[in-house]
Amino acid sequence: MTCRHRPLWAAGAIIVLSVLAALRPAGAEEALVRISNFAFVPPDLTVKVGTTVTFRNEDDEPHLVVAGDGSFRSRALDTKDSFAYDFSQPGEFSYFCSLHPHMQGKIRVSR
């Protein structure tokens, strides 16, 4: 992908995100965890209850996002695939990649 495509892509993303935001109930928030270089970035994220967290794989290697307590599990995410999960309960949710279990992260959901 060359640089000149990026502004167009970014504009497209903003439109898509705006549309998504418009469709969500008032107050719902979004957050992103990138999966990059065999790590969840950021590895520790605090969000408000009701936030949808999207995990997006940016590696040339598939990854999974699996909750330590089994409450959520993505399918295998290939390059550029993503997985979204609504955190509707407060608490701490540890998760890891079941393909590469040394990859770990945590979502703290506050009221």
């Binding site: 330590g68 890891f96 279990p101």
Partner: peptide
């Protein structure tokens, strides 16, 4: 042998 199922967080 099979050592790739039910892997635990942080583990091998």
């Amino acid at each position: 042998l099979v050592n790739v199922v039910n892997l635990k967080a942080g583990g091998l």
